[in-house]
Design a protein around this nucleic acid. Sequence first.
RNA 1: UGGGACGUAGGCAAGCGGUAAGCCUCCGGAUUUUGGUUCCGGCAUGCGCAGGUUCGAAUCCUGCCGUCCCAGCCA
Length: 576
Amino acid sequence: MSELVEKPEYLDFIREAVAEDLRTGRYKEVRTRFPPEPNGWLHIGHAKALFVDFGVAQDFGGKCNLRMDDTNPEKEDMEYVEAIKRDIKWLGFDWEDRLFFASDYYEKLYELACKLIKKGLAYVDDLDEEQIKEFRGTNVPDKNNITYTPPGRNSPWRDRSPEENLDLFERMRVGEFADGSKTLRAKIDMAHPNLLMRDPVMYRIRRIPHYRTGTKWCIYPMYDFAHPLSDAIEGITHSLCSLEYEIHRPLYEWFIQNCEVFPSRQIEFARLNLSHTVLSKRWLLQLVREKKVKGWDDPRMPTIAGMRRRGYPAAGIRDFLGRIGIAKTDSLVDIQLLEHCIREELNTHANRYMAVINPVKLVIENWPEGKIEWLEAVNNPEDPSAGIRKIPFSSTLYIDRDDFREVPPPKYYRLYPGNQVRLRYGYIVTCTGFEKNPTSGEIEKIRCVYDPNTRGGDAPDNRKVKGTIQWVCAIHAIPIEARLYDHLFEAERPMEVPEGKTFFDNLSDHSLTIESRAVAEPAVVEIEKGQTVQFERIGYFCKDPESTSSLAVFNRTVTLRDTWAKIEKKFQEKPH
RNA sequence: UGGGACGUAGGCAAGCGGUAAGCCUCCGGAUUUUGGUUCCGGCAUGCGCAGGUUCGAAUCCUGCCGUCCCAGCCA
């Protein structure tokens, strides 16, 4: 992956720790893992974890495993496994032949649980869910807060003999007991200040078919038990996870130590938070279920699939991931940084085309009747190897409504009566007038004359023409549908909502604008689905898979930087 | 009145006792057949606050303040 992204000139705290572990001989090599639960699609937050997991392994000559952390039959599905694999591959990470499933370890995990029972470190508990909570001694309200101080109480079943526990656990496995009637718990310390250490549940009884093991098991291991041991089974040296697991680390170490398995080390880092969106499978699932978006791959979603459909290149995403850094500070990354990385990548790789989103007719009065000229246009000024193409020019063109003003605002140097402008790769034209619809008042036609000596846009007399605008020949115009996307949420932090409101209230009402009158130059027919191009002066657009032979649909990936919009806004705020 | 972590610019983030990197944003200016790109320049006498140690502190010590996580038989 070293070729995939530029390395910073310093070591982040994780790499520092790993380097230290190698130096001291704590580990001989580096092995990491990316452990998604197949219960939702991957989002940009997972991409950060992927980048850290695969990146650290790569940097130290190690390997990173892909492991489906599937220990909860209620929510997991093969559909998600496939989606996850596809997205990881697309992002450019390679697990080679190391795809594993926690569900493949059920038997080993069961044996390790028996080992703890034999050592007197685990027991079968008959307490129900409510009682466990009560005995943990945590649910004690104190003024409006919660006090965690009271020590818990031992379960009356805590001192069963290893023989009895072994027998009961075996009978749990074969299905003798009802769902929820018994659990296997680790025997640690019911008075421990860290709640997770108060005899955590290791196994629960759930008669729900698992998407991979079917009905073979009716007991399923909990994360805190399964995770460290799965890591150990795979010989993971560094188990990198997010900050919320910090408090789980003592438990992680307890299981590893007492099961006497490979000593994996857990290191936590801050998960990614991105402005104007939500990064949690739970909330994303809600957006999908409540039909706030069209699906997991809606281009407004921060999912990998959504970004891919939106037109974000994987290289741009990786660049972003490399720039945000790795630390333990809870932070909120500005989505503008992501957009900047996407633009930077696309600027050098996306071919240019001319399109007009909101067309208005431009008639060239002195253009020879019926003449059509094919002009040369550069495909990518940043990349000469991208070549050139031909575009047709005639007496009637379409230009964008925004490129004409009846009365120009300050600093405006596009078309207005009497002003001249360059039609990109075409000719320099001078506006001679315009026509309005008498009833609606809408401008229907703009008139101009062209200078035959300016073919291609060059000014032989060296005159300065400030404005250059894009255009589309009316005769050859290809109708397209442009889907203009904006941030999904208006608020920088969508989850911060006033009492009685939900994050749905923060949804932006202009996150999607469909422009069905848009037109483009004929060459756009060559663009393939999934390909991202630049529509000059507008932005980058990706041809959507929903495109048909009769209508091409383009998703706006990201706009170009718009300095004019800033100038205009400034003058609107305080005109002078 | 518990435990675990974290506080460096508007947003990220280096810095590891020798006098505040870099990136994004923002603001100027140059170049430009995309108001794009590119290029120059500006943006913390200051590192949560208060003391202390030291010739010297963002870095070490003490105390305070603030923020986040922990009450699933979810991961």
